[in-house]
Simulated assay, not measured.
Amino acid sequence: MYLIEWEFWQMITESEPKRKASKAEMTSSEIRMTNEFYAGDLEEEFNFQPASEKPQTRGPVYAFNENFMEMRCGGSEEKRGLLTLAVLGGIIPVISVTTISAVSFLWIDITDHATRSFITVTLTLIMTLIAATVIYLYAKHGIKLTRLEILTSRHLLIRFNRITQQVHLHRPSYCGGVVTFPWKTTGSTGLYPEDDSLSVGMRLGLIWHPIHTGLPHMEMALLGKQGQGGSELRDEWEFIRRYMEEGPHAVPRPRLSTQLPSPIQAFSAQFEGLGRFFRKSSWLFKLAMLMVWPAFVIIGTAHWASLLLCWRPRWPKVIREAGLPGKPVPSPTTLSDYPPEIQERLLANADRWQLKPGKRPAKKPRKPRTPKARKIPT
């Protein structure tokens, strides 16, 4: 499911009326938080120094060679299947039943003159209106949600090309499209040991800020599987950093995953980030997990159906050939690569990423409360 990427792209291409309406609903503290970005915060995230002594990746990795490494992206892969279940188990049956009923009533009215009456004609009009309304609402509002995991690219991909020193993101156009960035403009969220406790259930995040890319908007990618705490995110970032800086010999060779719609991937995705927690949990919790196994089977099956109903993503030719002898180097993405309407909206939202100079001021320590003097009754 590409829900996070889709929502982020909707935000940075938001029209002016919608942005004014959403801003009017924000509280003063929320508005203050959106304007509290400092240049010092960004400098800390763009750090190419060693972050871990154990570089390793949890995958999935689809390609690994001297030229490039390719990994899976996506911020909500473990939720994939829920939307497919709703569409295949709810929306499609409703559309089918209402459409077939309307066509059946209409066919009877046309072919069987003996049974035609005011009531049958009225029922035909009602069923036709219901079917048309359902189809219209789904076409206008439902299809754009359905394509987040059905009839779209099977996975979001990220490719690290160490020959050209570039990073490529492969996404559908409604999530930002295919973009190219220089490696040295890449920021990471997996850098600091003090954040290890926050990595439970989180993925490694990479960011590209306008101050480095020249674009009017920020880009992001959430890599691989969910973390289980500890230093997993830093280990994965160190794996990527060493591969790009030193080469494939500097990291352990990862186990490659298939891009085919594997049922193993579909069922295992539900348990990403839970392995360590499950091992340390009580027997009562493990028993409860066993009691709800039918739900995991249903969601896993829907996840697999989603993979089957999608196609394997394919890179543009210039990116596929990048790094080969005599082949051109892909140009980094610029504002002119987007359609005029998208350019206008990206520029209208450029102020979201403005940075305040300097470093974030340290929080003032709160003064300890002095206990009130207790009155002694006389």
Rank of each mutant, 00 (worst) to 15 (best):
P50C: 10
A51E: 06
N67E: 15
A39T: 11
E70Y: 11
K54Q: 08
Q49Y: 00
P55G: 06
F48G: 11
L42V: 15
M69R: 09
G59V: 02
M71G: 00
N47C: 14
E70W: 05
E53G: 05
E53P: 01
M71A: 00
G40N: 07
T57D: 05
E66T: 03
A63I: 00
F48P: 08
Y62M: 07
E66C: 00
M69T: 02
R58I: 05
E44Y: 08
M69C: 10
E66Q: 06
N47L: 06
E66S: 06
L42N: 11
R72G: 10
Y38K: 07
A39G: 09
Y62H: 15
R72M: 07
Y38E: 05
P50A: 03
C73G: 06
D41M: 14
D41S: 09
E70S: 06
G59A: 04
G40K: 09
T57I: 05
G59S: 09
K54H: 04
F46G: 03
G59F: 04
E43G: 02
N67K: 13
F48T: 13
G40Q: 08
F37C: 04
P55C: 07
T57L: 03
E43A: 15
M69S: 13
V61F: 03
V61C: 10
D41V: 09
P60H: 03
V61I: 02
A51Q: 10
R58D: 11
C73T: 10
K54N: 10
F68W: 08
F46V: 13
V61A: 03
P50W: 07
S52Y: 06
S52M: 10
K54S: 03
F37I: 06
Y38Q: 01
L42G: 09
R58H: 13
N67G: 13
G40T: 13
E43V: 13
D41E: 15
R58E: 06
G40D: 11
E66Y: 02
